[in-house]
Design a protein around this nucleic acid. Sequence first.
DNA 1: AAACTATTCAATAAATTTATTGAATAGATG
DNA 2: CATCTATTCAATAAATTTATTGAATAGTTT
Lengths: 196, 196
Amino acid sequence: MEIIELLGQGEFSVEQIAEQTNLTIANASQHLQVLKQGQLVDINRQGNFIFYRLSNDNVFKAWKALRELGVERIEAVEKVVKEFRKSKFDFQSVTIDELIEKIDSGKVTVLDVRPESEYRQGHIASAISIPIGELSKRLKELPKRTEIIAYCRGPFCVYADEAVSILLKAGYKANRLNEGFPDWKLENLPVDVSIS
Amino acid sequence: MEIIELLGQGEFSVEQIAEQTNLTIANASQHLQVLKQGQLVDINRQGNFIFYRLSNDNVFKAWKALRELGVERIEAVEKVVKEFRKSKFDFQSVTIDELIEKIDSGKVTVLDVRPESEYRQGHIASAISIPIGELSKRLKELPKRTEIIAYCRGPFCVYADEAVSILLKAGYKANRLNEGFPDWKLENLPVDVSIS
DNA sequence: AAACTATTCAATAAATTTATTGAATAGATG
DNA sequence: CATCTATTCAATAAATTTATTGAATAGTTT
């Protein structure tokens, strides 16, 4: 499930997948073979590297439907997430629809706080990239007056929470997107890719 | 999964569920307790009877997403379904969107071939009820000139296939809806209920 | 209290599932 | 052929899951 959540963002090599999930290469490969047999992922060989991707939108859709059902049914989960955000960060999140409105009105800066490699794979159109680890020292790149909406991988990704916390303390107007890039992509909303 | 598919149509008592799924009462009850603990179903007591229903639209949505992913991934399944319909009945099915258009244009009769108890629980607005078992002897209730679209429980429910086969042989113009009543209901399309 | 519906209990039965690793191997590149 | 990435193999380890039934019990109505 962790691998599917990750691949919701785009293509990744076995090494990258192993790194992100804290698995050994051999172990990640074993899991990927299972997913491949189940036709949930496809491969794309480029030289020595083999890149994995979800074989189809429906894979992420089904995973998302299950995840949402789980969150809804196990009220404890939702409670913990809300309490966590309330006590630690004290702010509410913005929905995808609300973000679209803000972008249309023009008075918003969209901030991608995932690792730069993931940003390059694809990101919300017009979003700028500052990985969470570099945010504190790169604050001057951000405008003080317009609102900043941070996002990362999905609803449980805390990078965005941390980013908002840092920004608020530094006097910026900030909030997080409740969902992540894969959810944005799934709805066929505008996406940019950095070609290397 | 069979029980969830069934409850996608509405409320059913334990006895009805046991009957539809060919389980003993005790066995059906055991399964229902599991579903209840997982908060996938809710109950509604009425006298001696306890009626079960899905606790939420998302339950059917998640089940549907998984089912569709499975059908798509296991190409053998889709192939069998298509071949079956082609060889045995020789016709293609109509999508929900196509049916809406046909209803709007006014020149269509919508036929519900499920058991009457299920029809009474809820059915496509303006659909008429003739359970599959009674269809052959009640043909005269149907118009010869306008097209007839039959439906039942879902994409794997063969009642609708049988109905179309019978109607075509009797000289009617007929086709089936690819999906079923639960799918129609999920999209908040017009539904009628027979109050008892 | 009888009749009815549904749940619970206790027991039986069958069947792998899931995760992980180190070492060897495969496949591609230059 | 050396180097790099990824897969496969063989083994280890831990942990219940899933389905079913008959009999007793619980809960409601008349």
